[in-house]
Design a binder for these strands. Structure first.
Lengths: 298, 298
DNA sequence: CCTATATATGCTCATTTTGAGTATATTTTA
DNA sequence: TAAAATATACTCAAAATGAGCATATATAGG
């Protein structure tokens, strides 16, 4: 056919953070991302998805951004009618699930355990790398790509390369979806999802990790008031790395992103921490990092 | 309807640079971006678009990346069947157009003249800003947004905010599309395009300007060998700003992105410049800028 | 009450990166 | 041969970053 008719779906990567566990909203007992047909009952994609998410989670979506549109033939069952999936990344302040449990939240490192480096190398890392290296050994190009994506052979671990890593594992047949068996596969290779949902999750995490460096998106996931350490733990959860405490502090308050509420926490032992709130007015006014280019003045 | 059936189109922002003029491929006498229905004769979106572009331009597309998927109701003529447009950004090394002229290349600042600050403030700038301010005056929020997007009132010009600026001009009714009249509008407000094509162009330019800061995409637009100044002029054309010559040099060769070919140019007067070539091998190996976060070692 | 421990917050300092400008080299043109 | 034009190389202050240490204020246990 040449008409361009297609079946259009929406699919969402909805992220929230509880304590130090980043989570993603799932359906089908944790084996799929929420999705559904794109109906014309809403003005726009964005507005429709927003309403739908709010009805599901019971809470407004602070941040919602289009991720990617997939339309590969092998995604469709019907050979004539193509399936187009438009994916979105949304950030919500997590709450107790409404209706006691329908949309389930799962820790996203269940699905991508090799992405969490907060406590050194994750469980199953060495076996996973060994298997990857075995697959790569025959081809110098593969060895190069694996070393780059996973930070081997003296190269630094780059937390943004989430999608490259997933794709390499997929090519190597090390994630369940590749063999068509959900839940199969190596220890350390994580839990599988239906179709290409885990790939979409990887895309969402990659986008979020990249974005957090130049846009204050972390605040979309925080409660109204919070301590510095809570903010740091949240960012660490998202990027899967530990941060340097006082340098993180310095960076945040140099940017004038937050202000004291005047109150302090009474929790835990140790000196009580000051509480801060986000200053959204600043967001628009700021130059937002921006240039790496040596712009000329005058 | 609730089936999610839709009419799917592809639309491309194809960019090239000639001398110091950035260009975009157009059809319909420069009033539209090239587009067409998405047919199932190709394995994937990307592959299909790539073939199509190569047949049109006669040259391979080096870089091709999905931009955004639009599906607003007001884009469709038929109320029942939604129209989904999947837009792409592609970079090509410009050549003489094949078939003597069918796909026309137009300088992209024809459409967005307020974006070119290489020679100070562009023509018509003051009238445009005056008109914007008039529109904004009634609402402090608008004043704030305009000042931020256009770098007024002490705020710095941020070359990445291409889309915000176009959207403000649209809201203010200062671009032709807003009134339904192509070619109408204020001097300095640029040439209009059909439908939302100019908005898609703005999206593409914004993406390219952002990307060039952390990915060596400029080389996709350069010839095989080139001088430092040619490279600088190309980057300046894309971001619409002048760069500091020796700092630009330093930045480029600190990154080991290029190497000498051993030859020099004989053109023009003055000392001949060394010729360089891009070292693509490095691309994969490099850490690619990355972190602005204070990652902790050990 | 005093001390050990835990957490929060502040400070220092060497190193690297950036911004801006100046100096030298090699060519063409008058 | 001098002047103009372009290319390439240095210099240096300011700002940002990375790493660690110091001080403040709480709790817990004796």
């Amino acid at each position: 056919m040449t008409t361009g008719l297609a079946q259009a779906d929406l699919i969402a990567v909805l992220a929230a953070v509880t304590g130090d566990a980043p989570r993603v909203m799932t359906v089908a007992a944790g084996e799929a991302l929420p999705s559904g047909p794109f109906t014309s009952s809403h003005r726009s994609l964005q507005a429709g998805l927003r309403d739908w998410i709010e009805s599901q989670t019971g809470h407004p979506v602070g941040f919602l951004e289009q991720l990617y549109t997939f339309a590969d033939r092998d995604r469709g069952e019907d050979a004539d009618l193509r399936r187009i999936s438009i994916s979105y990344l949304g950030l919500v302040r997590e709450q107790a699930a409404p209706g006691a449990g329908r949309p389930e939240w799962h820790g996203w490192y269940e699905y991508l355990p090799w992405e969490d480096h907060r406590s050194g190398l994750p469980e199953g890392w060495h076996r996973l790398i060994a298997a990857l290296n075995l697959w790569a050994a025959s081809d110098p190009g593969r060895v190069q790509r694996v070393a780059h994506a996973f930070g081997l052979e003296g190269q630094a671990w780059n937390e943004d390369l989430v999608l490259s890593r997933y794709e390499l594992l997929y090519e190597a047949g090390l994630v369940g979806e590749a063999s068509g068996l959900i839940g199969a596969g190596l220890a350390g290779a994580g839990r599988a999802m239906q179709g290409d949902h885990r790939r979409i999750l990887a895309t969402g995490i990659a986008r979020l990790r990249a974005k957090i460096k130049y846009r204050p998106v972390a605040f979309e996931l925080m409660p109204e008031s919070f301590t510095f350490l809570q903010l740091q733990r949240l960012v660490e959860a998202l990027i899967g790395l530990r941060l340097h405490k006082s340098n993180f502090r310095r960076q945040i308050d140099q940017q004038d992103l937050i202000e004291e509420t005047g109150e302090t926490t009474a929790e835990s032992r140790g000196r009580p921490a000051m509480l801060f709130r986000y200053r959204p007015a600043v967001l628009e006014a700021r130059a937002l990092a921006g240039t790496r280019l040596p712009v000329s003045r005058g």
